[in-house]
């Protein structure tokens, strides 16, 4: 006898309004403390995306040409003239800022992450508060605070050390990077099964030895993909400094456009060029991040 009623899960799709377990996803469970959202998005774009963007940037003035007001060569020429300056005076500074920030942020983040698993509650809680504060503050606000609160020069006796704006920007950006990397470190350490601690404990290793000889070497690899993801995020965030007058690529683009009589047709080619430059720099990082993540997941 044919069933009069369809039974969900047997001959019909299951439906439920109860909470259900999502399917197990090993790449998330493997202990990457971070979502790698940016890297995933970037890497999902096809390789010709920057080329398409570049074409768009170059062809944009054609629209102006079609309106019959300017020759498109003028905008393209202007951009081409400025490109070496934008790249070597501007974008190099962005890279320098990002590398220095990452170095400081990594060092501080490691300390803060380790402090979060300290056996001493005072250290643990303090580290947690610091981490959460800087993770959940707007980066621009942190930048403003550091920029305005930091002296522009330090006097030690007769010695005067000037602190350029971009160094202050490095300090400002280091804070959120530090906090986020601290979470990466903490997450990676806690992803190591507790049996490893117990086995090492029963072999009479000290806590310090367990951490540096047994736990950290195991989770070092797991930290690399989220670490690179944060590097890409940070690089894309470096133009924030332009709001504070640091002469990085966006600031210089604006200045270049002023020098070209601030013609509105220049906006899209110049800012579009910035976009292409960041894309070309960050896209391989994102692809590499995901490749490493896949490889480490298979191995561990």
């Amino acid at each position: 006898m044919a069933r009069a009623r369809r039974i969900p899960g047997i001959d019909a799709a299951t439906t439920t309004d109860l909470a259900v377990l999502k399917p197990f996803r090993p790449e998330r469970a493997a202990g990457s403390a971070d979502d790698l959202t940016l890297s995933r998005f970037l890497a999902s774009l096809p390789w010709w995306a920057p080329a398409a963007l570049a074409v768009l940037v170059v062809l944009w003035p054609v629209a102006g040409f079609a309106q019959g007001r300017f020759g498109f060569a003028r905008e393209t020429d202007a951009l081409l003239r400025w490109i070496p300056y934008l790249l070597f005076s501007g974008f190099l500074l962005n890279i320098l800022i990002s590398i220095l920030t990452m170095a400081i942020g990594t060092a501080l983040g490691l300390v803060l992450g380790l402090a979060q698993i300290s056996p001493r509650p005072v250290v643990r809680r303090t580290a947690w508060v610091i981490t959460q504060t800087f993770r959940n503050s707007p980066w621009l606000v942190l930048l403003f605070i550091v920029m305005l609160a930091f002296p522009f020069e330090i006097n030690i006796g007769s010695l005067t050390i000037n602190i350029p704006d971009w160094i202050k920007a490095v300090f400002g950006l280091s804070l959120p990077i530090m906090a986020n990397l601290a979470e990466v470190v903490r997450g990676a350490i806690q992803s190591v099964p507790s049996g490893q601690w117990e086995a090492a404990d029963s072999l009479a290793f000290s806590r310090h030895q367990i951490l540096w000889r047994i736990i950290l070497p195991q989770c070092f690899k797991r930290m690399i993909p989220p670490w690179m993801n944060w590097y890409a995020i940070l690089t894309m965030a470096t133009p924030l400094c332009s709001l504070l007058g640091v002469e990085e690529i966006v600031t210089l683009s604006r200045q270049a456009m002023v020098a070209e009589n601030s013609r509105p047709e220049l906006l899209v080619p110049f800012y579009g060029f910035c976009l292409v430059v960041f894309f070309v720099y960050c896209y391989p990082i994102a692809r590499w991040t995901l490749a490493l993540e896949r490889r480490f997941n298979v191995k561990l």
Partner: peptide, 18 residues
């Protein structure tokens, strides 16, 4: 540490260092 040098322990999950 002195105690654990005298007492060896083996676990259900082996817990070798991978």
């Amino acid at each position: 540490l002195a105690l654990r040098k005298k007492v060896g322990m083996v676990f259900q999950q082996y817990n070798l260092f991978p």
